[in-house]
């Protein structure tokens, strides 16, 4: 029901997308400790308010995109194409 602004397709109903999750950095797999890796796997900040999150336009252009959304109002500020996850 939310209209998501796909950078390639324009505003489309959220049912066309798959929600991937919060943006979070992937630790270096070669040096991560168990704590760091499992935080990356299972913990989320789950902010009540503005956060960046990743969506996948699975019933559209099949591109990954990043959206800034306020989780308390579903207001959407900006969307941009997927960019490489920063590595620490």
């Amino acid at each position: 029901m939310i209209l998501l602004p796909c950078p390639w397709c324009g505003p489309r109903d959220s049912e066309e997308f798959g929600y991937v999750g919060e943006i979070g950095a992937r630790p270096d797999p070669r040096t991560a400790t168990q704590q760091q890796w499992r935080d990356y796997l299972y913990l989320r900040r789950n902010v009540a308010g503005w956060a960046s999150e990743r969506w996948y336009h699975r019933m559209g252009c099949r591109r990954y995109l990043v959206i800034e959304r306020d989780s308390t109002t579903n207001e959407i500020r900006q969307s941009r194409p997927e960019t490489p996850r920063s590595k620490p």
Binding site: R26, R54, R63, Y64, E82, P84
Partner: peptide
């Protein structure tokens, strides 16, 4: 989707 996620997100 998994392959695309790696290609688009990380590489």
């Amino acid at each position: 989707a998994w392959l695309e996620s790696w290609l688009q997100t990380d590489h």
